[in-house]
Amino acid sequence: MKTDVNETALLEGLAHNDRSAIETIYAQQYSMVQTLIINNNGTAEDARDIFQEAMIVLYEKARSGSFELNCQLKTYVYSVCRRLWLKKLQQMQKYIPNANGLEETVSVDEDMDVHDQRNSDFLMMEKALSGIGEPCKSLLEAFYLQKRNMTEIAGNFGYTNADNAKNQKYKCLMRLKKLFFSEYKNHV
């Protein structure tokens, strides 16, 4: 089945971080996922976590540029959530062999592998960032994640000038890189 024009537009919006597109997808797909999780031994909270993780998979896929969806969006989201939930159930050792309405639909193996890799990268970076302590963490986040400029940062963090702040930023960056790569090289 081909994706219809509407869904392609939504995915494009998602890739560009367009809030109304994300909201539309969220509102359309959430109830279906919630029913799936709750019928299979989960709670509303589990449903939210699983659905949001699936949204991240979709977001990463949409952003990668090479996105071709050869089924309906609904089927894709369903398949991803199914995989994520089965994995979670297994982790909690609550596996149910004849899961309600959990039959295989489209294969998402490849996407899940990519996602697992990205997710472990994400966790590594999160761990490294929390390891460098304050004010390093906030300083780097302000510059690299919130993309604020150095003069503004110097003012907010109480440095006398932008050069001082820059110097401190590079020191922090070195530490972050060291922490990150010590983990990263173990995994790759």
Binding site: R118, M125, E126, L129, Y144, L145
Partner: peptide, 9 residues
């Protein structure tokens, strides 16, 4: 990596 981290966050 840092960029991707920021985006996902």
């Amino acid at each position: 990596q840092l960029n991707k981290f920021g985006e996902v966050k």
